[in-house]
Amino acid sequence: MNTTIEETLTSLESRFELKDIKQQRGDLVFVTVKKEQLISLLTHMRDNENFTHFVMLSVVDWIEDGVFQLSYILNNPEKHVDIVFRCMIERENASMESAHHLWKQVATYQRELYEMYGIDFPGSPRVHESFILEGWDDIPPMRREFDTKKYSEDTYFPRPGRESKDPKEHMKNKLYPDADK
């Protein structure tokens, strides 16, 4: 493991609870942290560990486990290493402390996550203003339970004349239609 990452993680371990440390590359590590500690951890990373570049905030919907995985990707631009902090939050009434005060662009990510996944970030500027989906009246569409295909079938109409045959079924109908009789 990269020495910067190692030192950073050692320094973090004394202050925060780190779980499931997974080294993906020499310069990229994934760490799971507790929801309550995340904001103070990010602040610490920015102010004391030189992870000043906030790369992105993403979310993964683990619907089967009933959790959202928030992934905060932080970068140390001097040492060229990344640490991704994973934070598992309840899927039901999902809510997370806002980090908009730490980096200016975070508010945009949080606004998008509220719109696309229904994750609330209380206090984040304009977080409830629609970002991309003005006039959307269905559930947040990036949630796994939202079925795009069904939505499109209900909303739009198919082009007539499209019909495809399965080779196996077609051969059965043509060559041995009585097999199951």
Binding site: M56, S58, V60, I73, K104, Q105, A107, T108
Partner: peptide, 28 residues
């Protein structure tokens, strides 16, 4: 940047793009 998550199936779990304009053309 691309953040890609696989759950071991034949389909990606999540592909998330980090485009520079997400910052440059919104907050900045």
């Amino acid at each position: 940047g691309y953040y890609v998550v696989s759950d071991g199936s034949e389909y990606p779990r999540r592909i998330n793009l980090r485009g520079p304009s997400y910052i440059h053309a919104v907050s900045l």
